[in-house]
Write a protein that binds this DNA or RNA. Structure first.
Length: 502
RNA sequence: GGGACGGUAGCUCAGUAGGUAGAGCACGAGCCUUUUAAGCUUGUGGUCGCGGGUUCGAGCCCCGCCCGUCUCACCA
């Protein structure tokens, strides 16, 4: 790797500092350091003159001749330390000058308040815990380069406190979801991520090969079919919180691997699920942010206070496209849609045109939480039909800020209808039929409600972030230098039959 | 995949009309014992994303490519 003269200079200086510190008796990469507490705890329990031990990364240094101010940062806070020549002694003070921005150190001393009123720690002794060989990003503007922020997230986390806050919130939201569900008697389960048939959704899967069985495997696109087998097996209330993988495009609301929460409840239905998701999401906002109104400054605030709007799909379409929409001929519907600047191929059916109108003209206008209900059966093959209209299914799609957040429905438990609808969806390709799942349904699955929440999008709604990359610690990025070029025309799914073991 | 925009010092960014590349921070040296974007003096640091082309001369113009952001397409 080619280094610029400047990078070589940085490296040499820091290594020279490291040698200086070693000569002064420091271990360049220390061992456990017993702290009085985190920096936040030390601040909280501040008492003038109190003796404490603290540790953290040096993120700011202000040298003033025979004394130095610096800031330590740990996972909880940032705290000022004060290093004085006559407190520390000549040698320890001189060695401290070899501490660079970014180094981890441990310090021991007394708490005091500076003339300007900042709680500080007067250092009596200190030791090096880890030397940083690279400089820190700029202290005032932080790290701006989006590419570096995503590829080297640790720099982003060090330099940009707001980023840290988003991921702290993410963690607390996940924790709340688990606590909430467990407190209501739902059992967390784990089902295969490596599946022989990628079912439960319509999406292109990632394909791989399992050497021991000589068999093609897929990364799951959804856990749904396994969770339903647990209902067959007698579990009444289960959920799974985990990763799904879809071999599709990558944009600000899609990442090839993403987190989903799926919940199933025997003897429930679409209404059970609606109430559950309302309580779950509004509860998470209340628990983590102390309010049910969320969003960043400059955004339209989202009010998550239940109950949320319920809007049947056809009503929304009629509202936008006219009360007589569903009595219109296909030609008239096509003409109307094209007048709205939608691209409508001649062969599109009336139902497809309707769906295009919904997705392009209506969904994005649903900012506040809205349950879109009673969708056409062909869009949701695993849902049970409405009793009063077999062309519709008992589902909701929860839409917030114009984006689909969570589908939920009364699960289809009729194995005969289920087979027919999966066959229709597979369009004659029998290899896509999950016979194991159908066999399980034939064993008898209790009536049930189920739903799946896109957790990354939920975090986006709750934190006000507009890109999924800003709520995932390590979003997918293209390799900077591919190990080997893909041969032209080779599909990413075409793998050699045998892969060497790593 | 299409379109728009971007990639200049370790970081954040300027760069006029095509005329030998700048600032702040960081870093080095000097001064400074209550500073906090510390301050003052001074210095180092650049394959201008990569590869071609036009030109006497390219960070700037042209072509190709790489990476990223947004957007459209795709997408339960």
């Amino acid at each position: 790797m080619d280094l610029t003269a400047h990078e070589i200079e940085f490296r040499n200086q820091r290594r020279a500092h490291l040698e200086t510190l070693k000569a002064a008796g420091h271990r360049p990469y220390g061992r456990a350091f017993e702290r009085t507490g985190t920096l936040a705890e030390i601040r909280r329990d501040f008492a003038e003159g109190r003796g404490v031990r603290a540790a953290g990364r040096v993120v700011a240094v202000r040298e003033m001749g025979k004394s130095t101010f610096a800031h330590l940062q740990d996972g909880s806070d940032r705290f000022q330390i004060y290093v004085q020549k006559n407190t520390l002694g000549d040698d320890a003070f001189a060695a401290f000058k070899a501490v660079d921005l970014g180094d981890f150190i441990g310090v021991e001393g007394e708490l005091f308040t500076t003339r300007t009123g900042e709680p500080s720690l007067k250092v009596q002794s200190w030791e090096l815990l880890a030397k940083a060989l690279h400089p820190l990003p700029e202290k005032w503007h932080g790290l701006q380069d989006t590419e570096v922020r995503y590829r080297q997230r640790y720099l982003d986390l060090i330099a940009n406190p707001d980023v840290r806050r988003v991921f702290d919130a993410r963690s607390r939201i996940l924790s709340f979801l688990r606590r909430f569900l467990e407190s209501r008697g739902y059992l967390e389960v784990e089902t295969p991520a490596l599946q022989p048939i990628a079912g439960g959704a319509i999406a292109t899967p990632f394909r791989t090969h399992y050497n021991a069985l000589g068999q093609t495997m897929y990364l799951r696109i959804a856990p749904e079919l396994y969770l339903k087998q647990l209902l067959v097996g007698g579990y009444d209330k289960v959920f799974e919180l985990g990763k799904n993988f879809r071999n599709e495009g990558l944009d600000r609301s899609h990442n090839p691997e993403f987190t989903a929460l799926e919940i199933y409840e025997a003897y429930g239905d679409v209404h059970t699920m609606r109430q559950l998701v309302e309580a779950l999401v509004s509860g998470a906002a209340q628990d983590v942010f102390g309010t049910m109104v969320v969003g960043k400054d400059g955004q339209e605030p989202i009010d998550l206070t239940p109950p949320w709007r319920v809007a049947p799909y056809r009503d929304l379409v009629r509202e936008r496209a006219g009360a007589d929409w569903f009595e219109m001929s296909r030609d008239a519907a096509r003409e109307w849609a094209r007048a709205q600047e939608l691209e409508i191929p001649d062969e599109m059916t009336h139902a497809q045109i309707t769906h295009e109108v919904y997705e392009k003209l209506i969904e994005k206008t649903l900012i506040q939480p809205t349950f879109v209900t009673r969708l056409p059966a062909e869009w949701v093959p695993l849902a049970k039909r409405c009793e009063d209209d077999p062309t519709l299914v008992d589902v909701f799609e929860l839409v917030v800020r114009g984006r689909e957040l969570c589908p939920g429905y009364t699960e289809l438990n009729d194995p005969i209808d289920q087979r027919a609808r999966l066959e229709e969806q597979a369009a004659g390709d029998g290899s896509k039929l999950d016979e194991e799942f159908l066999r399980a349904l034939e064993q008898g699955m209790p009536p049930a409600g189920g739903m799946g929440i896109g957790i990354d999008r939920l975090i986006m709604v709750l934190t006000g972030e507009e890109s999924v990359r800003d709520v995932m610690l390590f979003p997918q990025m293209k390799n900077r230098s591919p190990l080997r070029a893909e041969s032209p025309g080779e599909s990413p799914n075409d793998l050699p039959a045998e892969l060497p073991n790593a």
